[in-house]
C-alpha cells in the first residue's frame, strides 16, 4: 500500500533529521568526557575511557560554582518580578476601566518593537549615573517589566468569564481579592509559559550582562562561557563541560514545562 510506505519513509526521514539535530548535544557531552582531546585529532563519539576530569578542572580553576549561583539568582528574581508586574498590569488592562486604556496598552505593545541593542548606550549611561554598573541590580532593572508578559496575561485573563467577578463583587470582594483569589489561579498555564520565557531570557541573556558586569565574581553563565574561549583556547573538553553544565538547568526546566513552552510559542503565532 503506497500510503503506508509513504508514511514509513516520512517517519524515517523525520527521525533521521532528529538524530542530526540531536547530534551536536551528544557530541558536546562526549567531548566533555574525553580529556585532552582536540589538539591533534577528532575525538571519537564514544570515548575509550570517559572521565570527569574536565568538570573537575572547570570547578577547580574557574569560578563556575559562583557563576551558576549568580545566573540562578538573577533568573529566579527576574522571573518572580516579571510574573508580578505582568499579572498586575494584565488585570488592569483586562478588568479595570480608566481613561486612555487603549492608548496605554498600545504604548506597551509598541515597546516590544524596541530592541535592547538600540538602548545599550543610554541605558549604560543611565546605570552609570545611578551607580549601578557592575551590580546585580544593574543587570536586573531593565528586565523588571515585560510588555510581552503583560500582553500574554491580558489575553489569558480576557478568557476568564466576567460573571465570576460579578458574583465575587456582590459578595463584597474588592479588586485585589478578585485578582489574587479568583483570576490568578485561573490563568495558571499562561503564568507557566511566561515563567519559562522569563527564566530563559535571563538565563541565556548575553549583551546586557556583557555591558553592565565587570567583576569576575558577578559574571553570569553566558559571560563565563564566552570567557572560557580565551582561557582554554584549544581545551575543548573543558569548554564542552562548561556548555553541558550551563545547559542542564534550562534543559530540566524545559522537560518539566515543555507543554507550556510549546503552547506559549504556538499561541503567540496564532494571535
Amino acid at each position: 500500500m503506497p500510503e503506508r510506505i509513504r508514511r514509513i519513509l516520512l517517519t524515517a526521514v523525520v527521525a533521521l533529521g532528529a538524530l542530526v539535530m540531536f547530534f551536536p548535544f551528544a557530541w558536546t557531552v562526549s567531548t566533555s568526557l574525553s580529556p585532552g582531546v582536540g589538539l591533534d585529532a577528532t575525538p571519537q563519539l564514544i570515548p575509550d575511557d570517559p572521565t570527569l576530569a574536565a568538570y573537575r578542572e572547570l570547578f577547580a580553576n574557574t569560578p563556575f560554582a559562583r557563576v551558576i549561583a549568580n545566573s540562578l539568582g538573577l533568573a529566579i528574581t527576574t522571573t518572580a518580578l516579571q510574573l508580578t508586574t505582568s499579572s498586575l498590569a494584565g488585570y488592569a488592562f483586562s478588568r479595570l476601566a480608566f481613561p486612555g486604556r487603549g492608548l496605554v496598552f498600545g504604548l506597551y505593545l509598541a515597546t516590544m518593537m524596541i530592541p535592547i541593542q538600540v538602548l545599550i548606550v543610554p541605558l549604560f549611561v543611565q546605570m552609570r549615573s545611578l551607580g549601578l554598573v557592575d551590580t546585580y541590580l544593574g543587570v536586573l532593572l531593565p528586565g523588571v517589566a515585560s510588555a510581552f508578559g503583560v500582553f500574554l496575561l491580558r489575553q489569558a485573563m480576557n478568557s476568564v468569564p466576567r460573571e465570576l467577578d460579578e458574583a465575587a463583587t456582590i459578595d463584597g470582594a474588592g479588586h485585589f481579592r478578585i485578582f489574587a483569589r479568583l483570576v490568578l489561579p485561573l490563568v495558571g498555564p499562561a503564568l507557566a509559559s511566561l515563567a519559562v520565557f522569563a527564566f530563559m531570557s535571563s538565563w541565556n541573556g548575553f549583551l546586557w550582562p556583557l555591558i553592565i558586569l565587570r567583576s569576575e565574581h558577578l559574571q553570569t553563565l553566558p559571560l563565563a562561557l564566552a570567557g572560557l574561549q580565551g582561557q582554554y583556547t584549544t581545551q575543548w573538553d573543558v569548554m564542552m563541560a562548561g556548555s553541558v553544565v550551563s545547559v542542564l538547568p534550562m534543559l530540566a526546566l524545559y522537560l518539566f514545562a515543555q507543554k507550556y513552552v510549546i503552547q506559549g510559542v504556538a499561541g503567540t503565532g496564532l494571535k
Binding site: W203, N204, F206, V247, L251, L253, Y254, V265
Partner: peptide, 9 residues
C-alpha cells in the same frame, strides 16, 4: 531543544 539553549553555548 536548541531553541531553549543559550546562544553562547
Amino acid at each position: 531543544l536548541p531553541v531553549v539553549t543559550s546562544w553562547i553555548v
